[in-house]
Design a protein around this nucleic acid. Structure first.
Lengths: 195, 195
DNA sequence: CTTGGAATTGAACGCGCGTGCAGATACCAC
DNA sequence: GTGGTATCTGCACGCGCGTTCAATTCCAAG
């Protein structure tokens, strides 16, 4: 099990990625050793270097893949017509996607500081691109008179923080179903921005 | 410079705490060595053990002190009369306090996983106590008909996540003043919960 | 000036880290 | 089978880690 001859530029081995994601999310990047990741895969530490040039690149690959994942799934999401429906779609999508990718979401805002400057810049740009998707919806609603937000940038940050926060407390099989949670957040967001 | 004879039960040296807080917040608990903290204080690594039994306790002390700080300052905050004013007070307080204690706030939700189980339980209880302060306001407003939230627990988590999020983007001297940010968040929160 | 305890140093301990690499092994085309 | 190449092991390297502790320095009280 390893990639074809030499180059590290193609896709990191799926089993290595899965193990690294799980361990990084659970214990933090700095606290996880290459030997632990290797053990999780069932391999010796040296073999990991067939899949990644170093530990840091492994983290970057995970974050990059996650951000690409978020953006491409949102692009494929049906947005309905008009800003109100688009906002509802965004809220539903963000909560649902975050919950199904909890580990990657967690990693993506916990381990940014362990990236090198240029890796950080790349991830940051993708995150910004995602935020811009929401801000565009708010601006459109503002222009059409459907929404009344004092500052679209601020509202964007507020809404995303609020939605991502779901990950910190939601547990499968808890008091509220995922659908119910989505619905309640929809209502709160709608009334917060409504004209 | 060190405490009196033997016991570690009293207050960790202020300079050690300050250095540890700054470094932990910047690089993460796992990535900071006792030697780095010592260097920041201007002392050899061994001397730190006059102030703390171990590295882990140093982290706990910082988080515990921060949570006590939050709770006591909120307790001393004027709340006005009635749930609407209390909610406004909470929003203003949370944003202002978080911004003036940015490093401690950051640490308190980034490094929970580096605590032992019992240390974690203690911090968690304090965090819960703080959240309960907000939830009590929402419940009172709900009972009096001033607010209409579908679920006070959820609204509590949503509001706190939204407010704490300010820390991730707010920078002194940026586009918006702290007062303006507080005001905008007040408006968004109010309209999100208003009956 | 002496003295005794508090404060600090500096060296040491065993350990695990990220990474590299020579050699062993597994697997596939012929 | 045989050859070759993709895959992986096993060990090594230098290093910094958290923590301990005997020895030293500092400083105030007598």
């Amino acid at each position: 099990m390893a990639r074809k001859t030499g180059s590290h530029s193609d896709i990191t081995g799926p089993r290595v990625r899965a193990a690294a994601l799980r361990l990084f999310a659970r214990d933090g990047f700095a606290a996880v050793s290459m030997r632990q990741i290797a053990a999780e895969v069932g391999v010796q530490a040296g073999a990991l270097y067939l899949y990644t040039p170093d530990k840091q690149a492994l983290l970057f690959d995970l974050l990059k893949a996650h951000m690409d994942d978020v953006l491409s799934h949102w692009a494929a999401e049906p947005k309905g017509s008009g800003p109100q429906e688009a906002l509802e779609a965004f809220v539903r999508f963000h909560i649902r996607f975050s919950l199904t990718r909890a580990e990657a979401v967690f990693l993506s805002y916990m381990e940014l500081r362990n990236l090198t400057a240029d890796h950080f810049a790349k991830i940051e740009a993708l995150r910004r691109a995602y935020e811009d998707q929401l801000e565009a919806i708010l601006e459109e609603g503002q222009a059409s008179g459907a929404f009344a937000v004092p500052d679209t940038k601020l509202a964007t940050m507020a809404i995303i923080a609020m939605l991502t926060g779901v990950n910190t407390w939601y547990r499968e099989g808890g008091r509220l179903s995922r659908d119910r949670v989505e619905q309640i957040y929809q209502d709160m967001v709608r009334s917060a921005v409504q004209a």
